[in-house]
C-alpha cells in the first residue's frame, strides 16, 4: 500500500493548515460565545478589571484561535507521525 509522505509537506503549508482552519473556527466560536455572554458579566466580582469590550472580544478571539490551533496541530502531528510509521512498516 502506498502511503502519502506527509512529513515532506513544506513548512509554510503545514503552518497554514494549522493556522487557517483554526482562524475560521475562532471567528465562529467568538461570535457564538459572545452573543451568549457579555464580557462584562464574565469578570469575577472580587476583581476590579477595567477592560474595554473591544479588548475583551479581541482577547477572546485569540484564545479561541490558540485552542483551535492546538487541535489542528494535533491532527497534523498525528497524520505526519502515522504516515512515517506506516511508511516504515511498508519498507
Amino acid at each position: 500500500m502506498d502511503v502519502p509522505v506527509t512529513d515532506k509537506i513544506p513548512h509554510t503549508q503545514q503552518a497554514i493548515s494549522v493556522l487557517w482552519p483554526s482562524f475560521l473556527i475562532a471567528i465562529v466560536a467568538t461570535g457564538v460565545f459572545f452573543s451568549a455572554f457579555n464580557p462584562r458579566d464574565l469578570i469575577p466580582f472580587n476583581l476590579d478589571i477595567d477592560i474595554s469590550p473591544l479588548a475583551a472580544y479581541s482577547i477572546g478571539f485569540f484564545l479561541f484561535w490558540v485552542v483551535a490551533a492546538i487541535s489542528s496541530y494535533g491532527t497534523l502531528y498525528f497524520i505526519i507521525s502515522n504516515s512515517r510509521f506506516l511508511n516504515k512498516q511498508n519498507r
Binding site: V5, K8, I9, P10, H11, T12, Q13
Partner: peptide, 9 residues
C-alpha cells in the same frame, strides 16, 4: 516529491 515543487511553498 515531484508534485511538492508545484505546491505553494
Amino acid at each position: 516529491n515531484t508534485s511538492e515543487n508545484t505546491l505553494y511553498a
